[in-house]
Design a protein around this nucleic acid. Structure first.
Lengths: 126, 126
DNA sequence: GACATATATATGTGCAAGTGGATATTGGAC
DNA sequence: GTCCAATATCCACTTGCACATATATATGTC
């Protein structure tokens, strides 16, 4: 069985806020209230993102009285991991260094949330 | 040095056409002409996507007479691979089955080449 | 039952950005 | 001059996102 491409997952985790949420629920359940505080957004907004994450199967909900507790569901990420496999074969054995790459591409990480496409690597062909 | 999140890479590979291109250049160089045929799009369009891929460092160009030969540059994907690491810890050891997940989410893979988002997986929130 | 809490959902608005199509132009290589 | 490809515009369309506000629903408390 050939695994196509995790289109849905990619689109979902391409959104910074949703990655923040994923990060937050990784390693433990979080209530919506907590998440609202963490991502610093209005509750309806957070709930919208949570719905997207739910639909993509990236999180799971559990009810606890009035609260809803969210936790990570890793399967879609496993799928992404699997998609990466043939590419992994590309760099396996060859002399690519992630270290070096990350240095060249070095991003001012902390503030990088808002940035979209930084003018990083390119040696424009012309 | 904290590795944030490969925002750029994700946004870039979230686009289906660009994934097609990546797939095409993986494992061998391709000329723009070939890529145009493969993705079935006008040359300017393909060139636009190639520029995005170049900027993100996902491909490399080489000149061959009048043609430009593109090939994969795996580093950004390695970065993505690294970003996945802490999540990998989530499913490691635990009893998650990718197999089972892929069955539930089952996509009609074989025909999925031309298709963008097959109707199976997506229950778009709208 | 009345009420507060936590969350989901709905609706409307504004806005920015991405995408494809089409076409024209440019520049280098032969 | 011809070929290949990059770039530049312009256009139309769609989509995603945030914000604000209102409402619905379930639960827990008094």
């Amino acid at each position: 069985m050939i695994i196509g491409m995790p289109a849905a997952v990619l689109e979902v985790i391409a959104e910074p806020t949703r990655r923040r949420i994923l990060d937050a629920v990784r390693g433990g359940e979080r209530s919506v209230g907590e998440l609202v505080e963490i991502v610093g957004m209005h509750q309806p907004g957070v709930s919208r993102h949570l719905k997207v994450l739910r639909t993509a199967g990236l999180v799971d909900v559990r009810r606890d009285a009035q609260r809803r507790l969210y936790r990570l569901r890793p399967e879609p990420l496993m799928e992404l991991d699997a998609w990466l496999e043939p590419y992994r074969a590309e760099w396996a054995g060859k002399l690519y260094s992630l270290e070096r790459h990350l240095h060249r591409t070095a991003t001012p990480v902390t503030t990088a949330v808002a940035t979209t496409v930084t003018t990083t690597t390119s040696k424009e062909p012309r």
